[in-house]
Amino acid sequence: MQSKPIALTILDIVSIIVLGVATYLALVFAPTELVMGDVQRVFYFHVGTAWVGLVGFVLAAVSGIAYLITKNMKWDRFEVAAVEVSTMFFFITIVLGSIWARPAWNTWWTWDPRLTTAAVTELIYIAYFMLRQGIEDPDKRARFGAVYALLGGLSAPITFMVIRLFRTIHPVVIGNASAEAQGGFDMTADMRTAFFFALFAFTVIFIDMMWHRIRLSSLQEKVEELKLNVSM
């Protein structure tokens, strides 16, 4: 096993620092929002994690295509890392959104297009891992994973568009205005600073976690290879 590269160590430290700064900006620096109070502060992390989550799912679909074309295991490792880290971040997004919705909308959950699409997307990627778990052969696992990541990446946007149709006909009193209001509440300059820094911070953390996860996959491949060698 090659030792940990210095760049990764630096990235680890940078990640911890930016996470700390983002937390400070969200909790202390940004002013308290008048209508919703303190709970609005989760918004910065909510958007930050949602951003990296969505980027990760797009990356997974793209690396799925890259794998199918090149058959290079490197892309498979990249894809697994993207899906896994994104699923984790997206889980945070959903939970934070739900926690925010409780005082803001007076409910933990509504079937608003964003929420529903988020839930369906999360289920797709949980299914992705169940699919991979059922396959022994690494090549086949990689191929099937790539195909499913591609399908998931394509169907999620259509899901969003379809669910939006339901709402134009059946307006839900709660979600409707508030979902729009989320981007619409007047962000002060300080809030904007916290907001954009959170996006930046989570991008850095995402890259760092991806890197670790990719290294884990390489290690795993090595172990599997060795197992074959020894048993033969």
């Binding site: 299914a127 169940m130 699919l131 998931g152 169907s155 899901t159 379809v162 149709l165």
Partner: peptide
């Protein structure tokens, strides 16, 4: 069904 339903959500809902 676990693989199919989440991906087929758009077609079923539409």
């Amino acid at each position: 069904p676990i693989l199919l339903f989440p991906v087929a959500v758009p077609v079923l809902l539409a």
